[in-house]
């Protein structure tokens, strides 16, 4: 891969940073910092999109970058911080797997992700095709974050981070989805966040905690 232009090198560095942030999120147990990492991931994503927009001269990508900045760096983290303060959930409980174990599983997942992305990378014609594997890895790592966490709040941040990975995947494979679809997805994410806000207060009112261990009574045997 010689002769990479500077902007492509920066793009690849940003992709690597994205993956690094995913690992950081996997290890982070303080929910406030988890949200900050999520905001940082959004910022990197927005920067990468803007750079790609400049490179390809695609006006639509500028809109995507602005949308990402607005939604994932400003609005969602603000909402999440507000929720954290009002609900007073600062720490996640001990994850189901300890940090070292989770990291090792995460490494295996990255290898698997690059294998999965191989056929797509081979067919892609975009300049950013080498990042597709990273996008798949970010999606799967976010998934791992979700399943190893106990608190509803951390699961939601994992969920949003998964959406970041999907967005980055779409960007690196096809320079983004059609605008109308992207707007729709952004709207869905925002509405999901609002629904969750309401929902968290309902859980809190009922259980006095956001620990999902409380939500395990619906089993088939005893219903």
């Amino acid at each position: 891969m010689d002769g990479l232009t500077l902007d492509l090198q920066i793009l690849n560095a940003l992709a690597a940073l994205l993956l690094l942030l995913s690992f950081a999120m996997l290890a982070q147990r303080r929910i406030v910092r988890l949200v900050n990492l999520f905001a940082l991931q959004g910022a990197v994503l927005s920067l990468a999109t803007a750079l790609l927009a400049w490179r390809t001269g695609d006006g639509q990508l500028y809109v995507s970058a602005a949308l990402t900045l607005l939604l994932k760096v400003i609005l969602l983290p603000w909402l999440l911080h507000r929720l954290i303060r009002r609900l007073e959930v600062y720490w996640d409980t001990e994850p189901m797997l300890n940090i070292v174990g989770t990291m090792l599983v995460g490494l295996l997942i990255v290898v698997f992700a690059f294998g999965l992305a191989q056929p797509i990378t081979a067919l892609a014609s975009t300049a950013t095709r080498s990042a597709i594997g990273i996008a798949v890895a970010v999606i799967l790592l976010a998934f791992l974050t979700m399943i190893t966490r106990r608190k509803a709040m951390s699961q939601v941040v994992g969920f949003l981070s998964m959406e970041n990975g999907l967005f980055f995947g779409a960007m690196s494979a096809t320079y983004g989805m059609p605008m109308i679809v992207e707007l729709g997805i952004a709207l869905d994410v925002l509405v999901a966040m609002l629904v969750l806000g309401v929902f968290f207060f309902q859980i809190r009112e009922q259980f006095d905690s956001l620990d999902l261990n409380n939500l395990e009574s619906l089993k088939d045997e005893d219903r």
Binding site: I139, F199, Q202, L215, S217, L218
Partner: peptide, 20 residues
């Protein structure tokens, strides 16, 4: 009710991951 909140959370998160 506690049961309905649990059902709602399960619905949201499982379908959310699925739809992702």
């Amino acid at each position: 009710t506690p049961a309905s909140l649990e059902a709602g959370w399960k619905y949201f998160i499982l379908c959310g991951v699925g739809i992702a």
